[in-house]
């Protein structure tokens, strides 16, 4: 069992939990994910690693309630334990492969949106620890929906964007990318985008226009997370890849986002996963 040592709400629907999982914490790298299962009846749910503390043996996850299983996760309390917490899975971020001297000369941009903000944090933090301060664009509909801004400001230059103009740049992240590149003349050598699929699609189109090499972190459906099931198939550059073992990060300019979005909704109308038809067997 894997105990939740701390839990806090980042917004009414998003929680951050630090979970005691020493083996995972010992090997975790930015960009990787874990598979968690709340209890014997639970689904295996992939979640991107948002931070890790090797000494304390904890791994941080951030979860947004969208369906039955994510709601079940968010209903767990400090002191409760996950039945399973397996990982780290997937390949670490490509940034870790770049030689440090080269990395220090690069101008790196992160684009984060929604629950995707937290998974950007370990990458920005890792860069900071290695002498690189990245730019991070965080987008939200309105300022109350921002998460992880304070944390991010400790490790990167943060640029905010809101659709309603309540904070930072007034407009979408694609507009802010344009503003930074075209009007402020920033030349980015590498970009990592993490957020809702639709945001990653359009942000990737924007960076493609400026020729900025771009990686996106996909949150495909998975069962085992180790390469066994193929539920997480995605087409990249015309070839089928498995998000769990070949990713989760892929070249954003080559991902077939429309297919990825369609596949993500495969079980949306399923009796079990739909919140309206789900028959709850929990004690609640």
């Amino acid at each position: 069992m894997y105990t939740i040592v701390s839990k806090r709400y980042l917004s009414p629907a998003i929680t951050e939990m630090k979970v005691l999982a020493p083996r995972v914490a010992a090997s975790a790298q930015p960009g990787q994910f874990v598979i968690v299962r709340t209890d014997e009846a639970g689904e295996r749910i992939p979640l991107t690693i948002c931070d890790y503390d090797r000494e304390a043996g904890t791994v941080t996850i951030v979860t947004q309630s969208v369906g039955i299983s994510s709601t079940k996760i968010n209903d767990m309390k400090e002191g409760d334990a996950f039945a399973d917490f397996a990982g780290p899975l997937g390949r670490p971020s490509d940034l870790l492969e770049i030689p440090l001297d080269k990395l220090r000369e690069m101008k790196i941009l992160f684009v984060a949106g929604g629950v995707g903000t937290a998974p950007v944090y370990p990458q920005a933090k890792w860069l900071k620890e290695h002498g690189v301060t990245a730019d991070v664009i965080i987008g939200a509909r309105t300022k109350d929906l921002f998460t992880y801004v304070d944390e991010m400001q400790q490790v990167a230059n943060v640029h905010l964007a809101t659709d309603d103009g309540s904070a930072g740049y007034h407009g979408m992240v694609t507009g802010l990318i344009k503003e930074l590149v075209e009007n402020q003349g920033v030349k980015y050598d590498h970009c990592v985008i993490i957020g809702p699929m639709i945001m990653m699609k359009f942000a990737s189109l924007a960076t493609k226009e400026y020729g900025i090499p771009t990686m996106v972190s996909l949150n495909a459906l998975m069962v085992d997370g180790t390469g066994m099931c193929g539920a997480c198939r995605v087409t990249v550059d015309g070839e089928t890849r498995f998000t769990c073992v070949d990713g989760p990060e892929f070249d954003g300019h080559k991902v077939d986002f429309d297919e990825a979005m369609r596949r993500q909704n495969m079980y949306r109308n399923n009796l079990k996963t739909n919140t309206e038809t789900h028959k709850c067997h929990c004690n609640g």
Binding site: A41, G42, E43, R44, I68, S69, K72, V223, D224, M228, C229, G230, A231, R262, R263, N265, M266, Y267, N270, L271, K272, T273, K279, H281
Partner: peptide, 26 residues
């Protein structure tokens, strides 16, 4: 959508007990 590997289909059914309505996996 609707194309599965046998591994996925069987893992959902066997390991995850998806055929049992008291389990969450679809």
């Amino acid at each position: 959508n609707g194309v599965f590997s046998a591994n996925e289909f069987l893992t959902r059914a066997n390991l995850m007990h998806a055929y049992d309505e008291t389990y969450d996996t679809p």
